[in-house]
Simulated scan of single mutants.
Amino acid sequence: MNASLFCMAIFSVTLNAVAQIALRKTMLTLGALPSSLITAFSFLTNLIGNFWFLGGMLCYAVSIGAWMIVLSKAEVSAAYPLLSIGYLITAAIGYFFLGEHVNTTRLIGIGIICIGIVVISRSA
């Protein structure tokens, strides 16, 4: 995988991670899912007009387009493991942007995943 294709993959993964953060912000903004049909309509109306939700969906759409470019030029068995970088990106954004707690055990797990990505990338 050449450098430009690798960058496109990282771009796609980053957008996917940003979409996850945006959806988390959506739910923090809107609150719990509705428990009845009466409140479901109001929830859906608020959801459709929510900035974070719309931004997250846009990030997903662009991410899918970028990922299709990656898959048009790289073997899926080499490209797909790069999606695991999303764990690192979402943990960092969650920590710095949402104030989420990232403990040592989670960091060790993410480190193991990153080591696995390096091992797989060397086989391609």
Rank of each mutant, 00 (worst) to 15 (best):
V70T: 04
L44F: 15
A66I: 06
M8Y: 05
T39V: 15
L23F: 14
S63G: 06
F41E: 06
L71T: 12
A22Y: 13
F11P: 00
V13C: 03
F41H: 09
P34I: 14
Y60D: 00
G56M: 09
Q20D: 14
F43C: 01
S63L: 03
N46D: 08
A17M: 14
I48G: 00
P34V: 14
K73E: 06
I64P: 00
L82I: 06
S36I: 12
I48E: 00
L54Q: 14
L47M: 07
N16C: 12
S72H: 11
A78R: 04
L5Y: 00
M68H: 05
F11I: 08
F43N: 01
A78N: 03
K73N: 07
M68W: 07
I21H: 05
T29Y: 11
V70Q: 02
G31W: 11
A61R: 01
P34A: 12
V76N: 08
T14V: 11
L33W: 09
P81Y: 11
L82T: 03
K73A: 08
M57D: 04
C59T: 13
G65N: 04
A9F: 08
L71W: 15
I38T: 15
Y60A: 00
N50Q: 05
K73M: 04
W52N: 13
F11T: 09
S77Y: 07
A19H: 10
G56V: 15
A79N: 06
L82P: 01
S12A: 15
P81F: 11
K25H: 03
M27T: 10
I10W: 05
A17R: 14
A22I: 07
I48Q: 00
F51H: 03
E75T: 04
M68L: 13
M27E: 07
W67L: 11
L30N: 01
A66E: 02
L47H: 06
L33H: 07
L30M: 05
V18C: 15
F43L: 02
S35M: 04
V13T: 05
S35R: 07
C7I: 12
L82D: 01
S72Y: 08
V62G: 00
F53Q: 03
S36Q: 09
A32L: 08
F51N: 02
I69S: 07
W67E: 08
T26W: 07
G31Q: 10
S77H: 06
L30I: 04
S42L: 09
E75C: 02
L47I: 08
V13Q: 04
N16K: 11
L44N: 13
V18K: 14
G65A: 04
V18G: 10
I69P: 01
A19K: 02
G49C: 09
S77G: 06
A61P: 00
F51K: 06
G49D: 07
Y60H: 00
A40R: 04
I69T: 10
A22G: 09
